[in-house]
Lab assay of single mutants.
Amino acid sequence: VLHDLRQRFPEIPEGVVSQCMLQNNNNLEACCRALSQES
């Protein structure tokens, strides 16, 4: 999931992506929604 998200959101730091995964229990859809608001 992390690799997938890193490719979709290259401009977001890995730490932020990891934190997002923890908050969303590694749910790819939820992470994508959260990160798209972030970027």
Score class of each variant (00 low, 15 high):
10 P>T: 01
33 R>Q: 12
26 N>W: 02
10 P>S: 04
12 I>Q: 06
10 P>Q: 00
2 L>M: 09
17 V>W: 01
5 L>A: 01
26 N>L: 03
17 V>N: 06
35 L>E: 05
23 Q>T: 08
4 D>C: 11
7 Q>S: 13
16 V>C: 04
33 R>F: 08
18 S>T: 14
38 E>A: 12
24 N>P: 00
17 V>Q: 02
15 G>Q: 14
28 L>V: 08
11 E>T: 08
11 E>F: 05
9 F>Q: 02
11 E>Y: 07
33 R>H: 10
25 N>W: 01
14 E>Y: 08
26 N>K: 02
26 N>C: 07
34 A>R: 05
38 E>Q: 14
34 A>T: 07
25 N>A: 06
21 M>G: 02
26 N>E: 05
1 V>N: 15
14 E>R: 03
16 V>K: 10
22 L>E: 14
34 A>V: 10
14 E>V: 08
4 D>W: 13
14 E>F: 00
31 C>E: 06
32 C>I: 15
23 Q>H: 15
26 N>T: 04
34 A>L: 06
13 P>M: 05
19 Q>L: 11
11 E>S: 09
37 Q>V: 10
33 R>G: 06
30 A>L: 07
1 V>D: 13
26 N>G: 10
7 Q>A: 13
24 N>M: 03
13 P>R: 02
22 L>Y: 09
27 N>A: 04
17 V>A: 04
26 N>F: 14
28 L>C: 04
4 D>V: 14
27 N>T: 00
2 L>S: 08
31 C>L: 00
13 P>E: 09
3 H>D: 11
20 C>Q: 09
24 N>G: 01
36 S>H: 07
26 N>D: 06
7 Q>N: 08
15 G>T: 15
30 A>G: 04
4 D>Q: 15
27 N>Q: 06
38 E>F: 14
28 L>D: 01
25 N>Q: 07
21 M>R: 01
9 F>W: 00
23 Q>R: 11
7 Q>V: 10
37 Q>C: 10
2 L>E: 04
16 V>N: 05
33 R>V: 10
7 Q>F: 04
12 I>S: 01
31 C>R: 02
12 I>V: 12
27 N>P: 01
5 L>Q: 04
6 R>K: 14
19 Q>W: 10
20 C>W: 07
6 R>G: 05
15 G>C: 13
37 Q>H: 10
4 D>K: 14
22 L>G: 08
37 Q>S: 12
35 L>A: 02
38 E>R: 14
38 E>N: 09
15 G>P: 12
9 F>M: 06
25 N>M: 05
27 N>K: 03
13 P>W: 02
5 L>D: 09
3 H>V: 07
31 C>V: 05
12 I>C: 06
19 Q>V: 08
28 L>M: 08
24 N>C: 07
5 L>K: 05
24 N>A: 02
36 S>W: 04
10 P>L: 00
18 S>D: 06
23 Q>E: 15
7 Q>M: 13
27 N>R: 04
1 V>S: 11
18 S>M: 15
27 N>L: 00
16 V>I: 02
12 I>A: 05
14 E>A: 10
19 Q>P: 05
37 Q>N: 14
38 E>P: 12
15 G>D: 15
31 C>A: 05
29 E>V: 01
8 R>P: 00
3 H>I: 11
9 F>T: 02
15 G>E: 15
37 Q>G: 12
2 L>F: 15
27 N>W: 01
29 E>L: 09
22 L>K: 15
17 V>P: 04
25 N>T: 02
11 E>W: 10
1 V>F: 08
23 Q>N: 11
6 R>S: 07
11 E>K: 05
20 C>A: 15
10 P>R: 00
15 G>N: 13
17 V>S: 02
16 V>T: 10
26 N>H: 07
32 C>E: 09
21 M>D: 03
31 C>K: 05
25 N>K: 12
16 V>A: 07
37 Q>I: 10
34 A>Y: 07
27 N>H: 04
31 C>D: 14
30 A>E: 11
23 Q>P: 02
4 D>P: 01
6 R>P: 01
12 I>T: 08
39 S>P: 12
21 M>A: 07
11 E>G: 10
17 V>I: 15
14 E>K: 01
35 L>K: 02
12 I>G: 00
31 C>W: 00
20 C>L: 11
28 L>E: 05
20 C>F: 11
28 L>P: 07
24 N>K: 01
9 F>V: 01
34 A>G: 03
19 Q>C: 10
9 F>A: 05
8 R>A: 05
2 L>H: 13
32 C>N: 13
13 P>L: 00
6 R>W: 02
8 R>T: 01
7 Q>T: 11
21 M>C: 07
19 Q>S: 12
39 S>R: 14
20 C>D: 13
21 M>T: 00
22 L>Q: 13
39 S>K: 13
18 S>V: 15
5 L>I: 15
14 E>W: 00
15 G>I: 10
33 R>C: 06
